[in-house]
Design a protein around this nucleic acid. Structure first.
Length: 574
DNA sequence: GCCGTTTTCGGCCCGACTGTTTTCAGTCG
């Protein structure tokens, strides 16, 4: 059983947690956390890299020591240091770190002075009123811990889908703009980096001196609790259990603040280090030489003064964007305007809500010269999947519509199921009549990694296989991806002239950002499609674009940026 | 524990807010 990167990262993070509670050198703790992050965003299994004889110490933030330790974890799943730490400290202490307001120092203190080892112990200590009597604690701290603990037991924290965060952000931003003296509002944070999920919302504002923005903010109807309120920063919890931060910054600092609060934290640390190398100090108020501010008003100005071109928010993950920027090799990221059509759209022939004509007209309205109808094949019976007769009927209808409609071409496609044995759900003589085949898995999700991979590889041997749709099968916050060797699949796709879909549905966003980058690096074409089941879903394209940008994709990496004739050529497998 | 166009030692991002304090530690992002 190969050890997953996520397991290695978990082990390293647990180690970091216990080291921190133990009171170890904070920089050592940070080294473990950095290494965990590096491994997690690797895109390839660390165990495989080791097998191939690669030295993990070449990775950023991993030295010879950690490389050796990671090797142990990758080979055995266990880690001696963690075992030792667990012998010294109860591992349940780690769970206490999840309580806001309780950090390593305080946990160590309550552990040593009150013998608290678990969440249950903590509850008992609270009930006995022991916490508030500890040095440095007090009544208020005790009450806060009690409330956070109750909240935690009620509901585990789930990151909010970008889609949902967008709705919350839009109405709140509109509300904030109505406060007195507000000049500008910017939504920063992972929201601006277009991460698939968002933990909280960071809002920046510039305003006049006499503005009442903070009072206005905490009075927002949707506020459940005011966590802190200051002149420069306030934090609230919305009724939807969503944290929102508002920061007021002076205009001379606005660009620096936007960079700072857009993050990611890792990107910020990296550019600060770059500043330090040049004797410059970067913080949310600007870029300083000695005590003089030399940049800060706009993001571009700050980057430029650091010797860098502007870096798009979606790239700011410290995954190589700084090195690319320094070499002037940043990707020219794809935008929504580059998209010429949607290649995975459903209709009333199966489980869509709108007719083919309605979907086509809606696509035309969005400026697309083409669209592909890709309804389900028969195996997906719950969706009323099509057999050969239904496909022929649909082909006839599309032919007629193409004669009738102007300014849009409807491509004849299908979302055909990949059966358990790797064959496709419809015979070749049906598939060959279509312009494209979007292929996907809809059942038998729990096959072993190699069996699932072989299933897809066999399907790709079928010359009609064009696009592998929602490859990982994950549903964000709901369903884990199936076991699949993406590298093998991308390799085969490259050889066979198949493409991979970036499904733009906000619950899916599948493939993810790391796999987008992997496809690009391996030269496999990506298709960004919405999987729309009604006309409004065509607008999901923007989430796909966000994900694609996070994966460094440029217009040329995505085949539905091509005009129709060149797209058709690309869809021909030789 | 990592890292190096000053360094193989001595740095390691930095500021706001809270709650506890009488000047600051802890936590957070």
């Amino acid at each position: 059983m190969p050890v997953h990167n996520s397991h290695i990262a978990d082990v390293l993070n647990e180690t970091a947690d216990l080291l921190e509670i133990k009171g170890e050198n904070p920089f050592r703790v940070r080294a473990y956390r950095n290494a965990a992050r590096t491994i997690e965003s690797l895109g390839q299994a660390a165990a495989e890299l080791i097998e191939q004889g690669k030295n993990l110490a070449d990775l950023p933030g991993i030295g010879e020591d950690l490389a050796g330790k990671i090797e142990q974890i990758a080979k055995t799943g266990d880690f001696d240091l963690l075992t030792e730490l667990k012998a010294q400290l109860p591992e349940e202490l780690i769970e206490l770190l999840a309580i806001p307001g309780l950090g390593a120092k305080r946990i160590a203190q309550i552990h040593h002075q009150l013998k608290v080892s678990s969440v249950d112990d903590l509850k008992a200590a609270l009930d006995a009123g022991k916490i508030g009597r500890l040095e440095g604690f007090g009544k208020k701290t005790e009450q806060n811990i009690r409330e956070e603990l109750e909240k935690l037991s009620r509901r585990p924290p789930v990151r909010t889908l970008l889609f949902r965060a967008e709705e919350i952000a839009a109405s709140l931003a509109a509300y904030l703009k109505k406060a007195k003296g507000v000049k500008d509002i910017t939504l920063a944070g992972s929201f601006r980096r277009r991460r698939e999920t968002v933990r909280d919302l960071d809002i920046l504002a510039t305003c006049t001196k006499d503005s009442n923005i903070m009072d206005h903010f905490v009075r927002y109807d949707n506020v459940q609790k005011v966590i802190s309120q200051g002149r420069k920063r306030s934090t609230v919890m919305l009724r939807s259990d969503f944290h929102v931060d508002v920061r007021v910054v002076p205009e001379v600092s606005y660009g620096a603040a936007i960079i700072y609060f857009t993050g990611s934290k890792e990107h910020n640390i990296a550019i600060r280090k770059l500043g330090i190398q040049n004797d410059l100090k970067l913080n949310e108020y600007g870029l300083f030489k000695d005590r003089k501010r030399i940049a800060g008003k706009t993001e571009t100005e700050v980057y430029k003064t650091l010797g860098l071109p502007y870096i798009a928010p979606e790239l700011r993950e410290n995954r190589g964007e700084l090195e690319a920027a320094q070499k002037d090799r940043l990707p020219k990221l794809i935008t929504l305007e580059d998209i010429k059509g949607d290649l995975h759209v459903h209709s009333t022939y199966t489980d869509g809500r709108h007719s083919i004509e309605q979907m086509a007209r809606a696509a035309k309205k969005r400026g697309y010269p083409y669209i592909a109808i890709a309804d389900h094949s028969r195996h997906v019976s719950v969706a009323g999947g099509m057999g050969p007769d239904a496909v022929r009927k649909q082909i006839d209808e599309i032919n007629k519509l193409n004669e009738k409609l102007t300014g849009i071409t409807i491509l004849k496609g299908i979302e055909v199921d990949i059966l358990e044995d790797g064959t496709l759900d419809l015979p070749d003589d049906v598939l060959e009549k279509l312009d494209l085949c979007v292929c996907s898995l809809h059942y038998k999700f729990n096959l072993s990694k190699q069996k699932q991979t072989d299933r897809v590889l066999r399907a790709m041997d079928n010359p009609h296989f064009n696009i592998f749709a929602h490859p990982s099968g994950r549903l964000i916050n709901q369903r884990e991806p199936y076991e699949l060797d993406m590298e093998q699949i991308f390799k085969a796709a490259g050889v066979n002239g198949c493409r991979v879909e970036l499904n733009a549905h906000p619950d899916r966003l599948d493939i993810n950002d790391l796999h987008c980058k992997m496809a690009k690096d391996m030269g496999v074409g990506v298709v960004i499609s919405t999987d729309a089941h009604q006309t409004e879903h065509l607008d999901y394209m923007r989430y796909g674009i966000g994900q694609a940008r996070r994966g460094w994709l440029e217009p040329d990496d995505v085949i539905n940026t091509r005009p129709l004739d060149s797209l058709k050529r690309l869809l021909k497998r030789s």
